[in-house]
Design a protein around this nucleic acid. Structure first.
Lengths: 213, 213
DNA sequence: GTCGTTACCGAGTACCTATTAGGTATCAGG
DNA sequence: CCTGATACCTAATAGGTACTCGGTAACGAC
């Protein structure tokens, strides 16, 4: 017994919580986008972060907790972005529709185009949501309730905006959401053949008419 | 040693191949729709069929083989249905477009409506495809190539049909596919709130115009 | 300095994973 | 009845799963 096996590894970095959690979210996002939540393994996430599974569990508690923290993070980023885009106080999707009633159609169209442009710049996040949205159709999926609520919220907001330009605003809102989701899938499957912004623009002309840009 | 442990279980049924394979496909379809392919376990499929994992492997060879046989089965059913719907010889999606050029728009619209109605009657299959389509965005997914090819085929066929009614037939085809896929997701997530046939009808009016029924 | 907090690790648990090798019993055809 | 094919089995392998318990050492505050 010339040399003892080291009882404790000190070659790993000890990061401040915020930074480590950001890293965990980032790595997990990539892996869920690739394999979904059912196909995700704590081991892979831990490896991607340069720590052990136990170290990872210290931060997130459980696998479900891991998913939760990813969703919470995205939620927070979205809120931040919306606030920055539309000004601090004005929440376009839930605000008073009378404010933008006069030019409602152009507003709605521009907002959708902005979302398409924004999404086109972050395929990984879009893919995370695409994969989780399908997986969470199953009621027992840990993100099922989250995605149901998220979709209802988006539908309600869009319906409000669509009221000024359609007799069936909810169906129009559903169509807009469906088109956007479907085009994103096509774009993720074959990014070269299907440019998200361009295809949305084309669809937009059919939905909103050839009049306003 | 009064009584030997039975060396072989004979309480399981021995089914003819065709019947057993049909059962395997059916059970697997349900389970993939619930958990995706990454979340699927051979054990669950075997249990659902009333045999052991090894018995299951005897029929499908491997987990990938299991997925393959499910896709092949669906493919065959689709082909059968299309043949029955449009007559033995006429493949509408790949046939000579000149044949249906005059009333192309109405044809296309009716075909889509028929698909919506057909899909509304088999949520389990639709969900299978929805989940696998998202999961297989990953290039390493065993069904990646299958879904890419399938989508390109559908897009090409629809584009052909759309040539008579649009200057940008491929974009219109993409929009139709996207809308259908997106509405299906909404319907699967909340079947009570979103009726597939009704919402497609509404979207159809926006896409094809209020003229023909 | 020393002390409490905490980021992280080692080892272990109880179980599930797909797949291989080799055997048994049931069937259809001669 | 016999024979070959095959539907299905037991057993074993080599590894992966999330998670718990009980540490250890790096940090900030004093």
């Amino acid at each position: 017994m010339a040399e003892e096996v080291p009882a404790f590894r000190r070659d790993r970095l000890r990061l401040p919580v915020a930074q480590r959690r950001r890293q965990i979210v980032q790595v997990t996002t990539r892996l869920i986008a690739e394999r979904g939540f059912w196909g995700l393994s704590m081991q892979d996430v831990a490896d991607g972060c340069g720590l052990t599974v136990q170290g990872l569990l210290h931060h997130v508690g459980s696998k479900d907790g891991l998913l939760l923290s990813v969703l919470e993070h995205s939620e927070a980023e979205d809120a931040l972005r919306l606030a920055a885009q539309f000004g601090a106080g004005g929440d376009t999707l839930t605000g008073d529709p009378a404010d933008n009633a006069p030019q409602g159609a152009a507003d709605l169209r521009q907002a959708c185009a902005a979302i398409a442009r924004h999404n086109a710049a972050q395929p990984e996040i879009v893919r995370l949501y695409a994969v989780l949205a399908a997986e969470s159709l199953e009621p027992r999926h840990p993100a099922h309730a989250y995605f149901l609520a998220r979709h209802r919220r988006a539908l309600a907001g869009l319906t409000e905006l669509a009221k000024t330009i359609s007799d069936h605003p909810q169906s129009l809102a559903r169509q807009i959401l469906a088109t956007m989701d479907g085009l994103q899938l096509q774009w993720l499957r074959d990014p070269v053949a299907a440019d998200l912004v361009r295809e949305w623009e084309a669809a937009s002309e059919v939905i909103f008419g050839r009049a306003g840009t």
